[in-house]
Design a protein around this nucleic acid. Structure first.
Lengths: 198, 198
DNA sequence: GGAGTTCTATATCGATAGGTACAATAGTCT
DNA sequence: AGACTATTGTACCTATCGATATAGAACTCC
């Protein structure tokens, strides 16, 4: 059976460019015209390759979580709760302080996604955020069981606190905070970390 | 000189309704149809009364800062740096944990405002956020001079940290965090506050 | 060299965005 | 009453949104 005309653009580089766009402007702030112009692709090509805007965004989200969010999964593997927290906070400082990256955060953008048309996207991103916080909470629960956190420490409260600081750093980076400034925020946020028995 | 036909709606209640809309959906997520429908006003009436969408948003922003942001100005008047921080953090917990209020935060929404059309709004809100952080910094600088913060404390770093937690709490509230949960986040964020000499 | 298949380009779809022209209406002034 | 002024409702403007119909171009298979 015939194969058909080959695609004239590389989908991976297209996804990379789309990621940068969505990262900077959010889901609704990025129009199809933005996408086709930046990717150098016509509208029908984009639809043939990715389905529609929403499906493209999902693909982008995967890439984003795999790349930009890698520090999170890595941090959760750190040996101690303190180290987990430190890697999470400093990882966020590195990510959002990197001038090569767009400011902001896909997750936060999605959280506040604007109109009702994007309700589906908003719900989905909300689920992602909750899952991310839950992963931290589970890790801290384990840490507490291991005596790595004091007995009166609340893993869920600490996980929520970490999430709050992480998202706050993303917002702060939109205002142009430098990497060094974000690092100092991370250091302050870490100063109160409860000491474990180990 | 004649006065003309009297306005059939109250601009204050209209602004109140518009505030709720913008608060929940952001600047770009709120359409003129949303506004006219919710306010019970026709399009030309809205334009005659407020100019255009952008001008209306500015009016709304004033109200928002005066009402929802009142806790901030009040907190800055607290006698000690610790009390300032405590009132800021707990005030945010009360505000964002109030089920009567829309989730999120006009300021954070504006920070991430979507498309390029809203660049003006975005810049303006960014300036507001920076001004807010600067106000905290000035207050903490005074606190340090008064011996209310240790000599090695950095007012600007602490102000940035407070801003980060404040914005993070707003984002967290979108995910449905309760007032009690936000209060505990505030408590954790406060635990590390540097002790002054006084 | 077709046949079959998939991509590309033009041109366009209906829906909605923010914003207005215009005439009718409702009030205060002299 | 009549002049003047501001608001109101209808109906419409242009621009852009996301998404497609259609036709031609480029490729592999037989």
């Amino acid at each position: 059976m015939p194969i058909g005309r080959p695609r004239e653009f590389d989908t991976e580089t297209a996804l990379e460019l789309a990621t940068a766009l969505f990262w900077r402007k959010g889901y609704e702030g990025t129009s199809l015209s933005d996408l086709t112009e930046t990717l150098g692709i016509t509208r029908p090509s984009l639809y043939a390759a990715f389905g529609n805007k929403e499906a493209l965004f999902r693909r982008v989200l995967e890439r984003y979580e795999a790349k930009a969010g890698a520090y999170r999964t890595k941090a959760l593997k750190a040996p101690t709760a303190l180290e987990v927290a430190r890697q999470l906070l400093e990882g966020a400082a590195e990510l959002h302080g990197d001038k090569a990256n767009p400011v902001g955060c896909l997750g936060v953008h999605g959280a506040l996604a604007c109109s009702d048309d994007a309700a589906m996207i908003r719900r989905e991103m909300s689920a992602h955020r909750i899952a991310g916080e839950a992963a931290i909470r589970r890790r801290l629960t384990r840490a507490k069981a291991e005596g790595d956190l004091p007995a009166d420490a609340s893993p869920s409260d600490l996980a929520r606190y970490l999430s709050v600081v992480l998202y706050g750093m993303a917002v702060q980076s939109v205002g142009g905070a430098s990497r060094a400034e974000l690092r100092r925020v991370a250091a302050i946020a870490l100063r109160q970390w409860p000491k474990g028995a180990r």
